[in-house]
Amino acid sequence: MSSDREAILGKVRAALAPLAERAALPDWDSELIRLRTAQPPADPAALFAERMKAVNGTPMHSVAELVAMLAEKGWRHGYCDPALWPRLQAAFADGFTVETSFDRTRVDDFDFGITAATAAIAETGTLILSDSDTSSRLAALAPWVHVAVLDPRTIHADIGAALAALPKDPNVIWVTGPSKTADIEGILIEGVHGPGVQVALLISA
């Protein structure tokens, strides 16, 4: 292995040695990736909600709205981050079974999972989940519905801003709409391995 390291780096150095000069690292302006239509968002939360809908995501603004949707669809068994549950519990009527630990041996039992989002990106309708804030990666992925509880004050304007503020965390994932594929004849199908319904619940902490 270590001999492979020396072999590779040796070959790299030998390959580059004849170059009279090497390509310089260009400095590029953040303006370059600003969308043509971008305005400084007056209301990042409104823009986020609009953009999230455009990628078939489901923004919601109250726990009651969420509970109504879950009840209507018959999605009554779920997981909730134990830190969030005290805030949400009151809105969940009888008939719901909500667990605060995700048992991976019963992955099919869970219709929904509720976890905390770290932040979001308005321009793309993207949720940002980092390990420090996500109580269970599996609960945020395996159930048909994922609900990310998002504080509207944490929304970044665009990708550049979100990258600049990337948390120092072992794992950060940007989620832009529900899981999807177009592998079979280019036909769009949602809910492949991850959620078929991706909710952002915009409520202030």
């Binding site: 990628v55 390990d131 072992p170 794992n171 994932i173 940007w174």
Partner: peptide
Amino acid sequence: ATAQQLTVYTEFVNGPKLPSRPDG
């Protein structure tokens, strides 16, 4: 690649999971 503004899941992996977390 797919004419999307962003791919659905863009994951930044910065090492093994946090000891305090169950998954990963």
